[in-house]
Design a binder for these strands. Structure first.
Length: 105
DNA sequence: TCCGTGACTTTAT
DNA sequence: CATAAAGCCACGG
């Protein structure tokens, strides 16, 4: 079976440094395959093994039900949270080239 | 093969 | 700026 997708997604999530965040859609683009929903599905399944709280929705708000946990962890890491939502423009993480799957430098 | 579901995104009101 | 509807992607029944 092809769990390559899952591997790539988890790998990227693990690569997100403290104090930074990324979105489902961005991860989907980085992997270059599937879509935001698919990324969410992966995290729903294997999220426990990675810093899932650094992955939030495109509107700067964590997924439903994770708000409390995610926001408190993000705040701990120094992520600027404003009224329950993260300022993506300031902390949106960009992966290092070598973290990407099949993209040459 | 068709339908429903889900840690989503974008566009329109 | 907040809420609602439609679109999108892979998967399982």
């Amino acid at each position: 079976m092809d769990d390559t997708y899952t591997e790539e997604v988890l790998r990227l999530v693990e690569a997100v440094p403290p104090g930074a965040v990324t979105t489902y859609g961005d991860l989907a683009e980085m992997v270059g395959r599937g879509g935001p929903r698919q990324v969410g599905a992966v995290l729903a399944r294997h999220g426990a093994a990675v810093p899932w709280w650094r992955v939030i929705r495109a509107d700067g708000r964590p997924a439903d039900g994770l708000g409390e946990r995610a926001l408190s962890r993000l705040a701990e890491e120094g992520v600027p949270v404003h009224d329950g939502r993260v300022r993506l423009a300031s902390v949106r993480w960009r992966p290092a080239p070598e973290s990407l799957p099949g993209r040459p430098v």
